[in-house]
Structures are given as structure tokens and as C-alpha cells.
């Protein structure tokens, strides 16, 4: 049972490390769009600090959204996806492995970069740890939800914009709880409440999303 899971995880990580540019892209995107904020808004530290929690979360969400489009795309183009669907391995676990690999490649680097960007936006010190914790769980939820959209749109020629359209409403709860975790920490309130909800969202999407994604992939491949 676990054979398919670890094989896919290994393969996806190996593929990613052979194309290091693709790993760097979401991170660079995150960096650049956060740089746009002081340019477009204000370089004043006090005003940046006020909006930093929300900005960092929205930009991390966009970076994750842009990268999730490629989750199944190359496998679909070269026929690997077709082969995965006919292997006698549970599709649920294989999807989970692909999402885990995607999170390790994009979600984790975004999370690790976030404190640096927080510093540049003069996020108050109290916000750093909650920012990292909420992004650690939140980006995993984003990858899981995004996988459903990626599965539904993989066979379409211009799936990218459509993917954002169908996935973004589903991202909203994650954004609300993620950004408010950081905001509450900055304001000096306890953050275990929103963090617990984030954990619940993660547990729930771990349960539902690979199932829905597997269904979506079957629809995409066989109509």
C-alpha cells in the first residue's frame, strides 16, 4: 500500500531538484510582490507594520495558487497520469504523495522566507512565530485545496485562470484564520484559538481533498 506513496514522493522530489528553477519561482514571486507593496503604498514603517500580517498572507496565498497549476500538468502531458490511474495502488495515497511533495517544494520555502519579508515590512516581533506556524499549516491546506482545482482543470487548454477562479473562494477561510493569527499575536492576544482552527482545517482537508482530487483526476482523464 505504501509503495506507491513513497515512490511518487521520491520521484516528485527528484524531479523538482533536477529543475531547481521551478522550486525558486514561487519564492521569488513572493519576494517580488511583497517588494511592490512599499513602492505602491508607503515606505513608512508604522503603516507597513499595520498591514504586514494581511499582506504577507495574501501574497503567500497567491504564490501557492500560481504554483499549484503545475501539480499534475507535466504528468498529464507525458502520459504518466494515465499510468498512475491504472496502477493497482490507491489513488488517494498517490495524490497525497504528490500534494506532500508540492508542499515540501513550495509551501515550506514560502514559510521559511516569510519572517525575512516580515522583517522588511517591519512586522512587530510578536508576530514572527505565529506567522511561521500559521503558514506552516496554512500552505499545506492551500496545497490540498488547490490540488482539487488542479485535478479538475488539468485536461483543459487554458486551465490557469479558471483554476484561480474556482479555487480562490475555497481559500478564503484559510486566509481569514491565517491572517488573524498573526494580527492577534501583534495585538497581544493569545493565538491558540485560530491556530487550532487552522489545524482543524488541515485535518479536514487531509481527509476530504485527496478523495475529491482523485475523483477530479478520473473525470479529467476519462470524462
Amino acid at each position: 500500500m505504501g509503495g506507491g506513496f513513497s515512490a511518487i514522493l521520491q520521484r516528485d522530489l527528484l524531479l523538482a531538484f533536477r529543475h531547481r528553477g521551478e522550486i525558486a519561482n514561487p519564492v521569488i514571486f513572493f519576494f517580488i510582490v511583497v517588494t511592490l507593496i512599499p513602492l505602491g503604498l508607503t515606505p513608512e514603517a508604522s503603516r507597513l507594520a499595520e498591514i504586514a500580517p494581511g499582506i504577507l498572507w495574501v501574497m503567500a496565498l497567491l504564490a501557492s495558487l500560481l504554483s499549484v497549476e503545475g501539480l499534475f500538468q507535466s504528468d498529464y502531458r507525458d502520459g504518466t497520469l494515465e499510468q498512475l490511474l491504472i496502477t493497482p495502488q490507491p489513488l488517494y495515497l498517490m495524490v497525497l504523495a504528490k500534494v506532500l511533495a508540492h508542499w515540501l517544494i513550495t509551501g515550506l520555502p514560502l514559510t521559511l522566507l516569510a519572517p525575512v519579508l516580515g522583517m522588511m515590512l517591519s512586522l512587530p516581533t510578536a508576530g514572527y512565530l505565529p506567522l511561521v506556524l500559521s503558514l506552516l499549516m496554512g500552505t499545506a491546506v492551500l496545497s490540498l485545496i488547490g490540488a482539487i482545482g488542479a485535478g479538475l482543470t488539468v485536461a483543459l487548454r487554458k486551465g490557469g485562470l479558471l483554476l484561480s477562479l474556482i479555487v480562490m473562494p475555497l481559500y478564503m477561510p484559510v486566509l481569514i484564520f491565517g491572517a488573524s493569527t498573526v494580527q492577534r499575536a501583534v495585538d497581544g492576544f493569545p493565538v491558540d484559538g485560530p491556530l487550532a482552527v487552522m489545524g482543524a482545517l488541515l485535518a479536514f482537508s487531509l481527509l476530504i481533498s485527496p478523495f475529491a482530487t482523485a475523483g477530479a483526476l478520473r473525470v479529467s482523464m476519462h470524462g
Binding site: 482539487i148 479538475l152 476530504i208 475529491a212 477530479a216 473525470v219 479529467s220 470524462g223
Partner: peptide, 12 residues
């Protein structure tokens, strides 16, 4: 395929 895909999406 359109029907099935949008059924999956509306269920989600």
C-alpha cells in the same frame, strides 16, 4: 466531462 467536473466542484 463538464457535468462530472462541475458536480465534483459543486459538492466540494
Amino acid at each position: 466531462a463538464a457535468s462530472k467536473a462541475s458536480a465534483v466542484l459543486s459538492l466540494v
